[in-house]
Computed example of a mutant assay.
Amino acid sequence: MTLQVDLEKLGALSRTLHDLSGEASQLYAREGVPWSSLPGFDSMALPSVIEASKLTSVVQDNLIPAMSARLDEIGNLMHAATVHFGTMEGANEAALAETYTTASGDWGIPK
């Protein structure tokens, strides 16, 4: 495989990630949980239902925007790499890999 083929694949993946970012931003976690906004909800609901409602809010307000932003960020990085390395020779494959992994940050599982 050549650097040009890798860059073409990276370009296609960047478009896919941008599409997924847009789709992720449209997710609505609160669907099916409209009762949580009713007056007096906390006083008449089971504690587990209240916690589920709170969790839904955290997903909607924090997780979904963060996921969408990360997909967009990595899509932008992939696109920038294809532009930057598009005119280079095949011998620069290691530099491309190093630039990409350095710029994408730590993908490890938090401890």
Rank of each mutant, 00 (worst) to 15 (best):
D42Y: 12
T101E: 07
L96A: 03
S14L: 02
Q4D: 11
I64M: 01
T82N: 02
M1K: 11
M88T: 10
S36Q: 14
S21H: 06
Y28L: 05
G75M: 03
K54C: 04
Q26C: 01
D19R: 07
V33D: 09
S36R: 15
A69F: 06
I74Y: 01
G86V: 06
A95V: 00
H18R: 12
L71W: 05
L38F: 13
D72R: 14
T102H: 12
H18E: 13
I74H: 04
V5Y: 10
A24E: 13
L17P: 00
G90Q: 14
S57P: 00
V49E: 13
I64E: 03
W35C: 06
T101W: 05
L3R: 08
V83M: 13
L13M: 14
S43W: 03
A24I: 12
G32E: 04
G105A: 04
S68D: 04
D42F: 10
S48L: 12
I109D: 10
N62D: 13
A24P: 05
A94N: 12
L17D: 01
L63H: 07
G108I: 00
L38K: 02
L27A: 12
F85W: 02
Q26R: 15
L7Y: 01
D6T: 14
A45I: 03
F41H: 11
G90W: 08
D42I: 02
V59N: 02
L71K: 08
T2I: 06
G32L: 08
R15I: 03
V33R: 15
A81K: 11
T87K: 14
K54Y: 07
H84D: 06
A91S: 15
M78A: 05
R30I: 07
P47N: 12
V49F: 09
R15Y: 02
G22Y: 02
H18V: 08
A91P: 01
E8W: 07
P110D: 09
